[in-house]
Design a protein around this nucleic acid. Structure first.
Lengths: 357, 357
DNA sequence: CGGCGAGTCTACAACGTTGTAGTCGTCGTA
DNA sequence: TACGACGACTACAACGTTGTAGACTCGCCG
């Protein structure tokens, strides 16, 4: 059996409260008593029962993180950052996967399993703006992503429109004129796909280039496989383009794969840019030009914000919208000049574009 | 305030135990009573307090998963599988990152934070065989990986030696004779690196090919960056080889990247195989031939085994060693025949090699 | 020399739940 | 008619912890 305060107290010949006091560094304890208690703790290998402590205190020291799927690299890197930030703050992270399914997301928000945590960092994918009311939950909540805006909870996210616009402008500056899209969502207005497409259209408009539906590729889940399939469909229907904007990195990488199968050279025939700046984007062949949306900052800010709300649930204040700054990581798949995949050394120039939020 | 059993009981005019009984579908309750209680539950929006339930029952319904880093794709995919398998079994997963650091791993094993979970799935990286005694912990534990064998806990892992040997034999069959290694660990005997290197040496020996230290590349953490750096070092010192065995996929992908920078064609000049069968390996350019080590099975088996031990801590039985079966996923980076990156369609032939454990 | 405050410690209740041991009717059977 | 069995429910304790209220012993000051 595992030792409890009672066991320690009996062995040390004191009350359990004194043992509790020793553990919590209560100042008024005689050195001799403290000593006996500490020896008893060591002898029995006592460690506090956190479940009991949680029941008593109403705090668990754990937070929940809900993402669509850890198999999607963006969410894996996000989870890594969240766990690291939480650990630095002394919290532990319970990770849930929703599969991006609206019903599972709604279930999760109401799940009593959340009672085991002090709050939730939630990255929805299936829910939409119409579900905004469901975010009104009786526990601290921080929302990530672009599915729902102006909700009753704090929201940490990236500047999708501005960043997508910057990525498109980057391609335009390097002389590309027909920029295909991989990963659009039919009829979506907000959501990562909708917002990034909007940035793309704004950039085209400013440059006086008409928006051409025939080079917009649609797909749902942003897996590599879908990026490749989406690109093959564009090619099969004879679309013509000199650049591709993958709405995230995995799509862009899948699309590069399909371009390569079809015999096109990147960036010579087609330039490619992605969005997310995954670690992977540095080592693909060719390396991928992409948008660094500030994921690390988003993770740290989400954790900090959530812990503040947990600490002080009453000093509420209105829900906040926190936006990360972004930059373009310029690499081989979309160089302005001549060099392509044959460049001797990988370039990893970074152009800071936005101001800090 | 959130509703408790007391509130429901008062509203329904029954004792709290009756409410508890209704919740747990205790049979001997009059329909009228059940009805009143259920209406009271709905009216107050009552959900059980899982912390209190845990304290009472001694079970939390959560398991912990400790991995080096979610930024490493292998562990991200492993975590995804573990969380999914746990969810199917009604359990929830708390994820910890150790950074592969021995001290943090040892701390974690003794951490009282584990009191919030019923057991641990542990993938050590810094600990070694000498630390086997530290695995003797007072809670259910399942160990993954290749750092420690014959410990006091159940162990689920892959057939590293056999799989690495099969990968090497695959390269030999396709006519390659000088096979470089990326990712070896100096002096390591067990551990993924040591075991996979052993499989490689066994295959060479069987084929009558001498082991050549000059084409063994060493590196510590298995990041893409290190794979690329390791390959550049081999090239810089003028090593000659017609194939590369990356001891995992990210190393192999980084190495492909460096090969490409140096002007070598894959697989024409150099064939490349990896190990892990990440999703990414299907969409790299060229797609990566690799070992599918049965990660999905490992995750499911680890969860099942852990839950069995939790269910029945007494019916112990001796610690078990469970081995996944593996296969070779044959893709473009190492084809037996002529075709290279120009193949029209991706091949994804799978050769089953091992028998089920 | 009485009393008061500071220091040291203890008893008890409470967090919300569930297991155990009961109470009180009612019905069927001997 | 008496009695046991069973159905429907309740009271209480316990899980291990921490906050609150208080007890007891000093030493010091008035």
């Amino acid at each position: 059996m595992v030792a409890t305060l009672h066991d320690v107290a009996r062995l040390a010949g004191v009350s359990i409260k004194t043992v509790s006091n020793v553990i919590h560094d209560y100042p008024h304890i005689r050195p001799a008593t403290r000593d006996r208690v500490e020896r008893a703790i060591a002898e029995l290998g006592y460690t506090p029962n956190l479940t009991a402590r949680s029941l008593r205190s109403g705090r668990t020291g754990a937070i929940a993180l809900a993402v669509p799927e850890l198999g999607l690299s963006y969410f894996a890197e996000l989870a890594a950052s969240v766990i690291e930030a939480a650990e630095e703050a002394g919290a532990v992270v319970l990770v849930e996967q929703t599969g991006g399914d609206r019903d599972r997301e709604l279930d999760l928000l109401r799940s009593p399993r959340l009672k085991m945590t002090d709050g939730l960092i939630f990255s929805p994918l299936g829910m939409g703006q119409d579900d905004v009311a469901h975010l009104d939950v009786p526990y601290p909540l921080v929302v990530l992503g672009e599915r729902i805006f102006d909700g009753p909870a704090d929201h940490v996210t990236m500047q999708n429109v501005e960043a997508a616009r910057a990525a498109t402008e980057f391609l335009l500056r390097s002389g590309r004129r027909r920029i295909a899209i991989i990963g659009a969502h039919e009829g979506e207005v907000i959501g990562s796909a909708g917002l990034r497409l909007r940035g793309y259209r704004e950039a085209l408009e400013d440059a006086g280039i008409p928006y051409d539906e025939s080079i917009i590729g649609y797909t749902t889940l942003w897996h590599r496989a879908n990026g490749a399939r989406c690109m093959r469909e564009l090619l099969d229907r004879g679309a013509e383009f000199d650049a591709v904007f993958g709405l995230n990195d995995t799509l862009a990488l899948g699309a590069m794969r399909a371009l390569q199968e079809s015999g096109r050279r990147v960036p010579d025939d087609v330039a490619v840019v992605g969005f997310d700046d995954l670690d992977e984007a540095r080592y693909s062949i060719p390396s991928l030009t992409t948008v660094d949306p500030g994921q690390e900052w988003i993770a740290r800010t989400a954790v900090r914000t959530l812990l503040e709300r947990i600490e002080d649930p009453l000093a509420a204040g209105p829900p906040r919208l926190l936006l990360a700054e972004f930059s373009i990581a310029e690499r081989e798949s979309a160089l302005a000049g001549e060099a392509g995949a044959d460049a001797a050394a990988p370039r990893d120039a970074r152009t800071a574009i936005s101001d800090p939020a």
